[in-house]
């Protein structure tokens, strides 16, 4: 059953909200999850994401470190006596327009240092990212974004994405 991970996740949320692992809670959660999944079907995501657990963990770790870095960066910006920002909107081309990849990436970019996803162009597979302070070096920002993209592709990218990455010599 393809919806099994979703059912398990919903059951886990239900049990978590009740706060105790009992047979009744699990059964109740499972019943409600099944009804929800049956009655409110999600749209099918056509692309087959290939999830690599190790790479996904590496992505999560990088992401947590980045969250701390970005918070410290915004803190320093905010507390600076003279506030002067050089803001920019930068296009980030993403290899292969896979929906799960674009979603993961758009979310990750919003929580990493100085960048916020502003617009998604799905046909062109491009994210438009707002940069709070580019400093003098726009290329450094682009390199940062490319690094996040690479980690995201290694974690959940489709085969085509991975091939593209290898083709550019970045795998």
């Amino acid at each position: 059953m393809r919806r099994l991970p979703l059912v398990l996740w919903l059951t886990a949320v239900w049990v978590g909200l009740w706060g105790s692992l009992t047979v009744a809670n699990v059964a109740g959660g499972l019943a409600i999850a099944l009804v929800l999944v049956r009655s409110l079907p999600l749209t099918d995501v056509p692309d087959r994401a290939v999830v690599e657990p190790v790479a996904l963990l590496r992505f999560a770790g990088y992401f947590l470190v980045d969250l701390v870095r970005s918070s410290v960066q915004v803190t320093l910006l905010v507390l600076r006596p003279r506030l002067q920002l050089r803001q920019a909107v930068v296009a980030v081309p993403v290899l292969g327009a896979s929906d799960s990849l674009l979603t993961l990436l758009a979310n990750a970019i919003s929580l990493t240092p100085g960048t916020l996803t502003l617009e998604v162009d799905r046909p062109a597979s491009t994210l438009y990212v707002h940069v709070i302070d580019v400093g003098d070096d726009l290329d450094a920002v682009r390199a940062d974004l490319a690094a996040v993209e690479r980690l995201a592709i290694l974690a959940v990218g489709s085969r085509d994405c991975r091939r593209g990455l290898a083709g550019e010599g970045r795998a």
Binding site: S71, V74, T75, L77, L85
Partner: peptide
């Protein structure tokens, strides 16, 4: 309060707020 516009304010509303 301090940041000048919507976009820079969204940065403050996401990152430090989430980490906090």
């Amino acid at each position: 309060v301090r940041l000048p516009d919507v976009f820079s304010r969204m940065h403050a509303a996401t990152k430090p707020a989430t980490l906090g």
